[in-house]
Simulated scan of single mutants.
Amino acid sequence: MSQIPLLVCDDSGMARKQLIRSLPADWPFRITQAVNGIEGLEAIRQGDGQVVLLDLTMPELDGFGVLSQLREEGLAAEVIVVSGDVQDEAVRRAKALGARAFIKKPADPLQLAAALDDLGLTIELQATDDASPAAPEMPQVSFRDAFREVSNVAMGRAAELLGRVLGVFIKLPIPNVNILEVGELHMTLADAQNDRQLSAICQGYIGGGIAGEALLIFHDSEIEDIARLLHARNDENSHLEMQLDLASIIIGACLNGLSEQLNINLSQGHPMVLGQHCPIDDLIRINQRRWKRTLAVEISYSLEELDVHFDLLLLFTEDSVPRLREILDFMLD
Rank of each mutant, 00 (worst) to 15 (best):
L41G: 08
A115D: 10
H309K: 13
S302V: 03
L61M: 11
R323V: 06
A90Y: 02
I123F: 15
Q261I: 09
L97M: 13
L19W: 06
V91C: 05
L303R: 08
P59V: 00
L230R: 09
D118W: 01
G47S: 03
I103F: 12
E184D: 15
T122W: 10
A76D: 13
V150S: 13
E318G: 07
H270D: 15
I327P: 00
L312F: 11
T188A: 14
L6N: 01
I170Q: 03
L315Y: 00
A192T: 06
K17C: 07
P279E: 11
E224I: 02
L315M: 03
M14T: 04
L328N: 00
V82A: 02
I286F: 14
L240S: 05
G47K: 01
L53A: 04
P5M: 07
S142D: 11
R293E: 14
L229P: 04
Q18L: 15
N265R: 15
D11Y: 06
R148Y: 10
A25F: 05
L53W: 01
S199F: 00
Q69P: 13
R233N: 10
N36L: 04
R16W: 11
D282I: 10
D329P: 09
T57Y: 04
V182P: 15
D282Q: 09
Q197S: 13
I250D: 02
V165S: 14
I44P: 03
E89N: 10
L283N: 07
A101E: 13
A15M: 00
Q87E: 03
G257D: 07
P139V: 01
I280T: 08
D10W: 03
W291R: 11
R30D: 14
E298H: 13
Q69F: 12
P322F: 07
R196D: 05
R228G: 10
T57Q: 10
V165Y: 14
C9V: 05
S302N: 11
A113S: 06
P24G: 03
I174T: 14
L229W: 08
H231A: 11
S2E: 14
N152M: 12
A115P: 15
Q126C: 13
I170P: 03
L244W: 02
G47D: 08
D88E: 07
E213S: 09
A214W: 00
S238G: 10
Q288R: 15
I280D: 02
F218L: 05
Q126L: 13
V66I: 02
L7Q: 12
G84L: 01
H239Q: 07
E60W: 06
L125C: 08
